[in-house]
Design a binder for these strands. Structure first.
Lengths: 340, 340
DNA sequence: TTGAAAGCGCTAACAA
DNA sequence: TTGTTAGCGCTTTCAA
């Protein structure tokens, strides 16, 4: 195993000399251009292997303006996004699609405000051909930064419209939160439920939460305010909200919960109060995270999103150089298990 | 907000012309070199802001051989490493240390064998100044690749010695698995436990598992083989192993479990068999993952590792250019809660 | 304190 | 099919 001090790697020139050809020919072999004699290709490949030659990407980039890399930027103010199965799945989709196109995915983190200038310099410095950005929380400065940089970008996950905007300024991919919520509530109505409560996410802070609530209201425009309880997308929050709802409306016979995690908490609260599911109260969740929805008791009827496909879509969008930003809303479908 | 077609960004030349100085002067301002007149600095900064100029890193790299970026490579053959709190914590340490040194961390994934050549080209292509590699599983080809590339690298987490090697070929950081296990078992002995069983990890596959078992044997060289049961670092595996042990050695009064996750399974199995913890059976875990160890019933006495510090250490090692690879073993300490 | 000029390693016309 | 040459945008001597 040859070791070489960093910085003294062989160059294309070394390969050319040793193979007895010109730099251009080596370059052509590396870039798989067709018009090179077969035996020359073989010879050059040999020398490349002998020398452990790896092309210097900086030099290549400088002339091609391509890097072969795409950044995924993960904003995680709470420091826990990383452990989120939803994000994991989204990211897998992005990676697979991009791997198929030969691009290297590099994940960058935004832990705090201090990271922003560094990440901006990185993105703006030509290290990558484009960026996929997950900004799960509002008020981030990614949008403005990206606009200034003029870098191809797709926002994803659960994006937020900027206050006042009706049309998004950037390409994005999102699940059909509103439609999904509508499906869930319609299902409950069509199965004879009459007092249908809702446990929502923080709808004043997250676009997705607001839309899921809007979907509920589409179906039940006259729902009493006391049937709606706001929570925070955590399991405990779901349990607490369920308890509150049961106190306030003991006669409720169904609940639409805006996330599976909260729904698992709600199921627990119902059990603690001796309500049977779905006999006394039907429960529908949102997300269809395999880890949760399939292992609750009873298994959760919930709104499914094809999260990996959303990831792939984001990657594809990055390469479609259209004049206007493209927004894609991915449809949802209801998966009926046992809780409703 | 100015938008500019990508690839037509302003260059240092544009800035120089507009500011009425030479390229060199602009370069000096960018790089904060001292010998520039204050008013010139101000003027150049203005122009940079006006033009939204960001230095082209490829050009810069080409001459400085520095990128300002460090890669973290995560090998995740099972596709789930990402959700591992241990890894999350390690990575946080790496990120914080590197952020403090002004380096941008980029995370690369190794999902399958297909990814290897792409990642190798990326690492070898000069995109980064060094690499931190987590190879939690054996048989990976990262070591060989890194050696050929001649890139500064530190391996981490739970590294594996190559068969036959006694000295590691690369720098690495690891927790003191053997010492930690020893502490745990000594604690059990000193508290009067006499029949101390062990639930181990896959010691034929993972170095860490092998060392934790070795630590157990250091204290109890004559332990009966039927007191040792191998599992797979999962919760269910821990529960199953505990059940087997109880069948085989009903008189056991303590168990050392090689991970918190398995220990939580073991606690469940003990409860199912009606054994009280720590009354009938004392249980000690390993890792001290806050999410698990603090919320079991009873809370777990376990071996603590400062995982974030291990991450920081890896990052530091990367910049210490010593002749020989440096190995650091981070000490552990026993955290006594209620299970033993 | 500033500028001129060389060159980092590569690709991409253009010639041969 | 191959070689020659001119940059890509920056840093870095060396002179001024």
């Amino acid at each position: 195993m040859k070791r070489r001090p960093h910085g003294q790697r062989p160059t294309i020139e070394d390969v050319a000399r040793r193979a007895g050809v010109s730099r251009s020919t080596v370059s052509r072999v590396i870039n798989r251009e067709p018009r090179v004699r077969a035996e020359v290709v073989v010879r050059v490949r040999e020398v490349i292997a002998e020398l452990d030659y790896v092309p210097n990407q900086a030099a290549r980039q400088l002339v091609t303006h391509r890097t072969g890399a795409v950044a995924v930027v993960a904003d995680q103010p709470d420091g826990r996004l990383f452990l989120d199965p939803y994000f994991d799945c989204l990211l897998r989709g992005v990676r697979r699609e991009l791997a198929g196109r030969g691009s290297q995915v590099v994940l960058l983190f935004l832990d705090g405000p201090d990271d922003l200038p560094r990440v901006a310099d990185y993105l703006g410095g030509g290290h990558v051909d484009g960026a996929v950005l997950f900004s799960l929380h509002p008020g981030d400065r990614l949008h403005e930064m990206i606009g200034r940089l003029g870098l191809p970008a797709v926002f994803g996950g659960r994006p937020l419209l900027r206050a006042g905007d009706t049309e998004p300024t950037f390409s994005y991919v999102d699940g059909d939160n509103r439609g999904g919520a509508r499906q869930a509530v319609e299902y409950l109505v069509s199965h004879g439920r009459r007092r249908i409560a809702a446990i929502t996410g923080p709808y004043d802070q997250e676009q997705s939460a607001a839309e899921r609530l809007a979907g509920y209201r589409d179906v039940l425009p006259d729902a009493a305010p006391e049937l709606i309880e706001r929570a925070d997308y955590t399991r405990q929050g779901g349990a607490d909200a369920m308890a509150v709802l049961l106190d306030r409306c003991p006669d409720l016979d169904a609940v639409f919960v805006a996330s599976d995690l909260m729904a698992s908490g709600a199921l627990e609260a119902l059990r603690a109060r001796g309500r049977r599911v779905p006999g006394d109260v039907a429960v529908v969740g949102f997300d269809d995270l395999a880890d949760i929805a399939e292992s609750t008791d009873p298994p959760l009827t919930t709104v499914h999103q094809d999260v990996e496909e959303m990831g792939r879509l984001m990657a594809r969008l990055l390469f479609e150089r259209t004049a206007r930003p493209a927004s894609v809303v991915v449809p949802t479908r209801l998966v009926v298990r046992a809780s409703a």
